[in-house]
Nucleic acid binder design. Sequence first.
RNA 1: GGGCGGGUAGCUCAGUUGGGAGAGCAUCGGCCUUACAAGCCGAGGGUCACAGGUUCAAGCCCUGUUCCGCCUACCA
Length: 877
Amino acid sequence: MKKEYDPGEIEQRWYASWSEKGLFHAEADSRARGSYSMVIPPPNVTGVLHMGHAMNNTLQDILIRFNRMEGLNTLWVPGTDHAGIATQNVVEKDLAKRGITRHDMGRDAFVEEVWKWRRLHGDKIIDQLKRMGSSCDWERLRFTMDKGLSKAVRKVFVSLYEEGLIYRSDYIVNWCPRCHSALSDLEVEHEDEDGFLWHMRYPLADGSGEVVVATTRPETMLGDTAVAVHPGDERYASMIGKKCILPFVDRQIPIIEDAVVDVEFGTGAVKITPAHDLNDYEMGIRHGLERIVIMDTSGVMNENAGPYKGMDRFECRRVLEHDLDAGGFLVDKTQYTVPVGHCYRCKSAIEPYLSKQWFVRVKPMAEDAIMAVKEGKTRILPAQWEKTYFEWMNNIRDWCISRQIWWGHRIPAWFCDECGEITVAQADPKVCAHCGSANIHQDSDVLDTWFSSALWPFSTMGWPENTPELKTFYPTSVIITGFDILFFWVARMMMMGIKFMGDVPFRDVYLHALVRDEHGHKMSKSKGNVVDPMDVMDHYGADAFRFTLTAFAAMGRDVRISDKRIQGYRFFINKIWNAGKYVLNKIEGFDPDSVDCSSLRFSLADQWILYRLNHTIHDTREALKGYRYNEAAETLYQFTWHTLCDWYIELSKNMLEGEEKIPTMWTLYYTLKTSLELLHPIIPFVTEEIWQEIPGKKEASIMVAPYPEVTDAFAFADQAKAMAFIIEAIGKIRSIRGETGISPKARIDVVLRSNDHKRQSLFKANETYIRELAVTQNITFIPMDDPRPPRSALAVVSGMEIYVLLEGVLDIATEIARLDKQITKTTKELEKKKKKLANQNFLDKAKEEVVDEQRRLNDELESKLGKLKTAADLLKD
RNA sequence: GGGCGGGUAGCUCAGUUGGGAGAGCAUCGGCCUUACAAGCCGAGGGUCACAGGUUCAAGCCCUGUUCCGCCUACCA
């Protein structure tokens, strides 16, 4: 084995090996062992791996590998998402470089171009996931525009349509004038911007006065069809029913009353533009108002805008303001913060726009999805997200699913040019279902990308066929994803899964945090703070990267990735490597299969590490089962480095001779192997590399080795406690050495003074540990009747005093100072304890075991303090 | 406007039934001890945002204040 761990070559080699052996594959066999399944949140096919993916896939892979080692029939379905608008934008940009627009090509050619793009670049992110070690079943790789998935999409659309849950209607939608498409409410990002509130006057038609309205969007006045005031607003009572004149377009519009109007806001009179504002649209329906669309699909003013026709909407605003002012219509203009919606893809300002769109009536499905969580059929973790889920589900509005783009699932609806009716069908119809005319054409819109994603947990398993996959693996065990797509995706999968499969799509939902930069800022290209996971892996290896993400994945908290931290865990990987190297070297030629471990005479140190290992197994398993990733990582880090390496391996160096040799070799072998298996789900590569070198009979890969289980055979609680005393003593002696500046090489003499015979014999029997790890020479045991050794440093442990003889080793003054420091510290602690125990209420009301514990600690501190004081006095004389 | 999360060591963060405040990095001192200097041994450092309350006991539970972040919203 090489001196330093080199991840690059090793990671590549093992991934290929696992793949060749078919270890990622799961068969759909419901008779087999229990099953465990997951579907990947499909990354955009245009995507490149970012920190979010890295986090997401690491957490998934850990659970997949853990459960696979548990012996479950474990499936992880991978795939990619066609990502309608995003992908179309990418390909359009590509074409633009060649001076071509999609309109030059036409729809069919453009769609073919996107497929071509996908074939060329679409698997990049898949390769990156492999680089991370993701153990997906690649034989089952799916794409949301696959034949099978497209079939599922059509089936769902047609069913919902027939049930009346999908309908087509005029409505105000979020329109992106750049993408030329409607967007769902979720695809709009709101942001407060500095704007203005314009007050403008509309003269009354009968010349009896004027009404002043306030608006943040003066250009929409061109589409006004009413002015509304609150019922009973005395200021305007006399105007109700009258008409006012809209400047520039000279339209007469009524003044109406509606309870929605806020008396306090602005002038208490609001202009109503039913075709360009949702509120106004709804008010328009209530009052039967005309709807005048004043812009085209690019946000350019149309013929209804009269003299402003042909102007961009923002240019129109500027010109109109000038004209209003010039015409004496502008009363006031004040600074005002206004929330503006932006397209989540291209960031253009969203235009509320009246158009005909397809919608899903989601209320009934939302109710079932709420019930499923309330009844515990699906658990949402961390639990605080449940509330958010309910909140959204309860206030859900119909889902606009049509998009005016070309890349995506075409809506399976055909319009009849003869009778005007709509035919919705799974198979492309030849004639209109209503009048039989062959003169039909398909709706040009495609479906919202999330429509197909909503079906992902069952469409990837072959639905609508009744496949063995569905039987074996549905519902999936858990979905792991970022909280940012709880509504986009998780909620909709819940609705669709319950609707079409009759059961929830997953038992658990685990929502992880966002990965941010080290200062807590969201990573973005414009900020230039993006850390590329591929760079990280090039530098530190996939294992170090995965371990970092895991250690940071505390439930419900943002993750701040920092280079330093990754480096720290890179060192940890190297530490494991070196421990492996040490153990393998020491057990060379050792055949673990020839040893019956139940007949081995384990040393105290052996028993101690086996006991600690048992605990580590328990804690790690519990943490993983509870999605407490950071705890699992922390537990294993502490055990491997600070228990196994710092203590046991050091202790083992003096136990590889004589009768201790075989038990020590076995313990080294066993502890290393088990630790690697425990670590494998988090850091698959380095663990496999070392594990393969371990002697003895074992599985073809650590990937399919059984995950370690707690065993009664190592329930060495008493021995572990005894060893802990020795470790404590070694620590105390080392501390004295360190603090008083005794040379690390100087073998010192130590006197252990105690009347505790058991303790004395324990230390006598295990003298070697102290001699080697605390670098001592003579260790003398004396009873409490014997006088304290003069000119010595003192450390107090429970039931024993430890004296380090200083004669000729160092200056007494240093030790006096050291003791004084400890006396101060101990006195403080003791005071706190005394105060507590002096409180009668505490003694009366606290649990008995708590009081006893406090008394014990008090006594211990008291005795320690006394000893320290005596020792200090002695030295001062 | 509504909702959620957070404020713990210089930095990044743990701390799940309330009972002696932790880790990593950074800092300081000492070590090339034959697995590892990407390492080993030792040390220093915190009125757990602030103010109240509950309790024998609060980083943890309750109320209020404040600061930061996020989500959500049809206040023109």
